[in-house]
Structures are given as C-alpha cells and as structure tokens.
Design a protein around this nucleic acid. Structure first.
Length: 553
RNA sequence: GGUCUCUUCGUCUAACGGCUAGGACGCCAGGUUCUCAUCCUGGUAAUAGGGGUUCGAUUCCCCUAGGGACUACCA
C-alpha cells in the first residue's frame, strides 16, 4: 500500500524536488522588527492595470514602508489561458510611475530583486510541487480524475436537489478511491488534478479575523478544492498559502472578493502547519450603473484601466492623493494643514479605512484634487509634465512647446509662480493645448465671430481710435497697476466710466465701463472673452504680436 | 438557492450611547476682480423602513427592504 503510494507520487512528480525542510532554510524568517509589516501586491497579468490594483498597491506599499517593512510585487501567472504577455512589466512600470516602488520582485526592466524569489509563480513550480508531494504523502491531498463533464453533471444534480454545489463530502468520489484506482487511471493516460482532502465540516463555525471587517463567524471549509491543475500549475488558493508563507508576508491586503475564501485559506495554512498572515480585505471601488453600484469593470469602464488617467494626463500625484483620500478620509484635513508637504509624509492608517462596501468612483473629485495639485507646481514642472505627456499623446502640442521653450514656459507661468493665488483651471495635461493656443499665431482665429460682434457693437472707427490711443501710451514693461490706469485713461477719454460703481451710479452718462474696453482688447488679442489676467498675457505676448493683433481690424 | 457582508446629504465620509448630526466635492446665491479661474460669505441636502433595550440610539439587539461579494482545473 505504502509502496503503491510512493509509486503514484513518483509517477506524478518524477523530478527531483526540495523537501519542505530545505525550503524553510532557503527562505528563513526575515530579520525585521516586531512591528514591521511585509506586504505584497499580487496581480495576475491579464493585459492591463486595474485602478483597484493601484489602490491596493498604494496601501500595501505605504503600510510596509511606514513600518520599516518590505513591499513585494509578485506576479500570479498561473492561468496560462488568460495571460497577456508584457503585463508583468507594465505593472512594474505603472507602479513606478506612481512612485510605488517595490522592494522585492519584478522591476520595470524585467529583472528581479530580493532573495525570496522567484517572484513569478510560473517559475515556482518546484516549490509548489514539493508541498503537494508532501501533502500526498501525508494523505492530506489526493489525485482526482473527474472530467469537466462529470463535474458539470455533479453541479447540475446538486442544484436539482437543492444542495450546495461543489466537490465535498460524499460527492467527492475520488477522495475515497484507492491508490490502485488512481494508478489505473494514470495508466490510461488520464491527467489528474490534485485536491485538498479538506478536514473541515460545513456545520462547524469558525471565527475569522479581518483587520477591516473585524471578527466574524463563518462556516468551516469542507470543499476539496483543486490545489494543482492538470497543467501542473497551482491554483490561486494554494499558491497564496505557499508564497505568502515562504515570502514571510505578515499582512495580506487584497480585494474583498477574497473574503469568502478566508476559511479555505486559513485551512490551507493549518494543513501545511503554518501560521497564517493577518488579512485586510478592501472594498472595491465601484461605479453607478443604471441606478446600481457595481465594481469598476475593465470591459465597461474606461476609468478602470490605469492607462485612462495617463492618456487624459492626470498627474500621478493627483491620482495618488485621490486614492489616499478614499483610503483615509482625514487625508484632506491633513492636506489643508500641510499644503506643501509631500503626500508621502501622510501616515496611512489601516484602521481608518472605511468598512462600507466600496466607494463610488468620482471623476469630479479627482478633477478638483488634480487642479489643486497642478496649481502648486512651478511653470517648469508644468512644462516638463506637459511636454512628456504631449510627446506620447499629442505630437502637435509637443512640437509647439519645443519650438520655443522659453515662450512656452512664460505662458505657463501666467498667474502661477508670482501669483498670490495661483490659477486653478488646469486639471490634466490635455487641457493645456486649449489653454495656450491663442498665444500662437497659427492658432488664433483672426476672423472670429466674437471679433465681428464687438466691432459691430463699438464701431470700426471708434475701435481704431481706442486702439491707437491705447498703443500710444502702453508700455510692455507696465505692471498691473500702471497698466490698468492707462486702460482707465483710454476708457474715460472715449466715454467709458473708469469703474463699475461710477457707471452704476449714473449709467446714462457713459457708454459703458472700463470692462468694455478690456473686453475689446481681450477679444482682439486672444479671440476669447475669457482669459487670465490681460496685463500678464500682454507681457508674455511681446510688443510686435500685440501691435499686429490690435491693428488687424 | 446557499454562505458572507454592507446601508449617514447627489458623491466621499466624521460623530466614547449624550451639544442644533460635522467636514470635503458638487450645486445655488451674494461679494471682490478688466473677463475667466481663484478667493471670501452664506445656503442646499442625510442617519433605508419598522420594532425593541435605554433617561437618551446614527451608535446596541431583532425583523423587513435594498445593495455588494463569493459559490471554476479564473484570479
């Protein structure tokens, strides 16, 4: 009997495998302080980076680094059918862009760092096999040759009878089969999966602890779940237990879709004789869809994919601050008290994460945060970010910026570095093109409807007189106050009140007020009725351009 | 169906069982400014419903309703 079991195991795993004891030595407990947290993010490479993945990564990384611990990036590529090549690198790259640097695992150059690897599950087969072999020897796991059709039939039957579906109890037929029967099936060329022989009873209740959800009662796991698929790769559940034990993870932070699997995972740790890590299950970020909330989904929501923010040109910092705000609502209080601090200085608290079922994604809130973030940047920073963005997503803008970088930076500095209250009208780099277009002669619409309108309103001759009077006294070096005084002088000369109060007091005495003259100049100069400070704009535009535009009636 | 979980302004959320349920975003109104973006003032709006326990319930308990997750050889 024992000989036959050995034979079966040898047929299943002919290769030379390390023993569990050897693996314990190879991956020893980490020499870290008691309070240090070892966390990891473990994406499966399916072609894109999910917004929720960034959220979990941010929290995991912050908690690890705040406690002088370790943050790991592990790639869960055990599903060969769904795998999209290059996603692992994409993930590492994206994290890096958002300043979420992992201490161990893959980096953006497809190299690995850290001594607890490999960090790609597809390269850890020997490790998983070692433990599966061990469980088989112990009689805690068994091969199962049930076909997909058989399993489907079983499920249908269970549904008909109103029973819980799954492979458990007396439904788990291969659990009771002899080693000889397994050998026989093997002889026929059938490929088995390996199942856990669950020691659990569904009637038993166990207490599970979650750092966010709290202490909860759940039924024990009694499902003989698959731990190794026919292709020899482990399932998520098994790989999770093995990897997080061997990598000495202390805190597993992941989406709460895993919460129902917690009894199973605790059982796996117990069967393997290991201490389970602490768990924190995060609520997924959701979206309103026909009046119902649902998880952000890749297929339906473009904002689920991280590349959406990149393409639109939201600064990474803004996205991070939005997520920090979702994670800990006191972040915005902290930000108000520390307006210029780096958000890295904010101490993230696991306890303050909301328990609710998941916040709704709010683009308007992100936009607000983004405007604040950009308002604090220097012209140089805005220029660099915009140029980098434009090189990838808007070639024309990139060319324009590079053609005269000094001019571009001057434009971007209007009401920025010298301003008491910097402008807050840019939420993303893609907004810039329109913001600055009228500074460039090839983008100015010289025959705009607005221009015709104002010329009609005031009269061509009158406009010419106003403009020539203004140009006669205007000096490019004029600062705000002087500039405005000159504007008032011209306004008064042509029958406009120099301030609003006077005009309102006796509207009959005037054609209008100084604002009307400003409006005229603004339209001739920019083709718009709404722009930043005109005086600042004119200083940047330079004398020749001003003359040319103002005289082009 | 089964297991689990959640529910406070439109949204994100705060409130040892104890002030008029607080803040932020949005929206609205007023003020400042050459227009806009700002900035300042004010306003709008919530404890899902029903029972208990209690001097007192957003908070504790029960029921109902609704939402979400899981229920694969996917993660």
């Amino acid at each position: 009997m024992d000989n036959n079991l050995d034979l079966l195991i040898k047929k299943l795993f002919p290769e030379n495998l390390p023993s569990p004891a050897e693996l314990e030595i190879k991956y020893p407990p980490r020499q870290l302080a008691e309070t240090a947290m070892v966390t990891r993010v473990a994406p499966s490479p399916t072609g894109f980076v999910h917004f929720g993945g960034l959220y979990a990564s941010l929290i995991s990384k912050r908690l690890a680094h705040q406690s002088n611990g370790v943050f790991i990036l592990r790639i869960e590529d055990t599903d060969k059918k769904r795998e999209v090549e290059g996603t692992a690198e994409l993930f590492a790259n994206s994290l890096k862009q958002y300043s979420i640097i992992n201490d161990e695992g893959l980096n953006e150059k497809t190299e690995e760092k850290g001594s607890y690897g490999p960090y790609k599950q597809s390269e850890r087969s020997d490790i998983y096999h070692a433990y599966i072999k061990y469980l088989l020897q112990q009689g805690k796991a068994y091969p199962c040759f049930a076909s997909t059709e058989e399993l489907e039939a079983l499920r249908a039957q269970q549904e008909n009878m109103g029973e819980r579906s799954g492979y458990y109890g007396h439904f788990a037929t291969w659990r009771e089969k002899s080693v000889e029967e397994a050998l026989e099936a093997l002889e026929k060329g059938l490929k088995p999966v390996i199942r856990l022989k669950s020691p659990g009873n569904f009637q038993n209740k166990i207490m599970v602890d979650d750092l966010l959800i709290g202490r909860r009662e759940m039924p024990e796991n009694d499902q003989d779940i698959v731990i190794m698929k026919t292709d020899g790769l482990p399932t998520y559940h098994f790989a999770h237990a093995v990897d997080d034990h061997l990598m000495r993870t202390t805190h597993v932070i992941r989406g709460n879709e895993w919460f129902p699997s917690l009894p199973l995972h605790l059982q796996l740790f117990s069967v393997l004789g290991w201490q389970a890590p602490a768990y924190a299950h995060l609520a997924p970020i959701q979206k309103m869809d026909n009046g119902n909330k649902r998880k952000l989904s890749k297929r339906k929501d473009q904002e689920a994919d991280l590349s959406y923010y990149k393409k639109a040109g939201y600064p990474e910092e803004a996205v991070i601050e939005y997520l920090l705000n979702l994670a800990n609502s006191n972040f915005e209080d902290w930000r108000r008290e520390n307006p210029n601090a780096n958000n890295e200085e904010f101490v993230l608290s696991l306890k303050k994460l909301a328990k609710s079922n998941g916040p709704l994604f709010d683009l308007i809130k992100l936009t607000d945060i983004s405007k604040e973030v950009i308002a604090k940047m220097s012209a140089e920073e805005v220029f660099t970010h915009t140029l980098n963005w434009a090189k990838e997503f808007n070639q024309n803008l990139a060319k324009r910026l590079e053609a005269d970088t000094t001019y571009a930076k001057q434009i971007l500095n209007i009401e920025r570095e010298n301003a008491v209250k910097p402008r807050k009208d840019i939420a993303k780099w893609s907004d810039i093109e329109d913001e600055i277009s009228y500074f460039y002669d090839d983008s100015l619409n010289v025959n705009s409807a607005l221009k015709k309108e104002i010329l009609n309103e005031i009269g061509n001759n009158e406009v010419k007189l106003i403009i020539s009077d203004f140009l006669a006294i205007y000096d490019i070096k004029d600062e705000q106050e002087e500039w405005f005084n000159k504007l008032k002088t011209v306004a008064e000369k042509h029958g406009y009140a120099s301030n609003n109060k006077e005009y309102k007091a006796s509207p009959d005495k005037y054609k209008g007020q100084v604002g009307a003259v400003a409006k005229l100049i603004r339209i001739l100069l920019t083709g718009r009725t709404q722009t930043p400070n005109l005086c600042a704009i004119m200083q940047v535009m330079r004398q020749e351009r001003i003359k040319k535009r103002l005289n082009n009636i």
